[in-house]
């Protein structure tokens, strides 16, 4: 309840108090030299990254399947800075999806299991007809990459 009112107040501030030139200064799009680059990437990626709601965990984090541990962490932080409800005034659902993807991919064991599953999903012909139809939606979205 506490933060909800914070977001409310934030919106009020943006719309009524600050002069218009400051409107873009709100987090997470603050203009600071050190993070301008990544933030631009971030805002432009949101729409594409979140289009496939059932995409693979790699898609959720916007990384390649062979990404290194460091790349996974970096991608997670970059997305957290855009989607965490503390900065983005949202419900937190998107951040939870990102975190779930990160939690699986940053754990070597869970990642191996997941990769295996993904590998089988991409070869639907070996699946039984029933399994194929059940998983077809995931399979389609996996085609994206």
């Amino acid at each position: 309840m506490a933060s909800t009112s914070f977001f409310l107040s934030n919106q009020t501030i943006r719309s009524t108090i600050l002069p218009p030139c400051n409107a873009t200064f709100r987090r997470p799009l603050s203009i600071s030299a050190t993070c301008a680059t990544s933030q631009r990437t971030c805002s432009s990626n949101i729409s594409t990254e979140y289009a496939p709601k059932q995409g693979s965990l790699y898609e959720v984090l916007g990384i390649q399947m062979g990404a290194s541990c460091q790349e996974i962490k970096t991608a997670y932080r970059r997305l957290a800075r855009c989607l965490h409800p503390d900065v983005a005034s949202n419900s937190g659902d998107e951040f939870m999806r990102v975190h779930a993807a990160y939690a699986t991919l940053s754990d070597p064991e869970k990642r191996a299991t997941y990769d295996m599953e993904l590998f089988h999903r991409r070869r639907p012909t070996v699946m039984s007809a029933r399994g194929y139809s059940r998983r077809s939606r995931n399979w389609e979205s996996d085609q994206c990459w």
Binding site: F6, N10, R27, S30, S32, C35, A80, R81, H84, D86
Partner: peptide, 18 residues
């Protein structure tokens, strides 16, 4: 300061706690 939406031109408040 972060939760009040304050910005710092030097990026000192570009912080987030998960």
């Amino acid at each position: 300061a972060v939760a009040s939406g304050v910005n710092d031109p030097f990026g000192s408040l570009d912080l987030l706690t998960i």
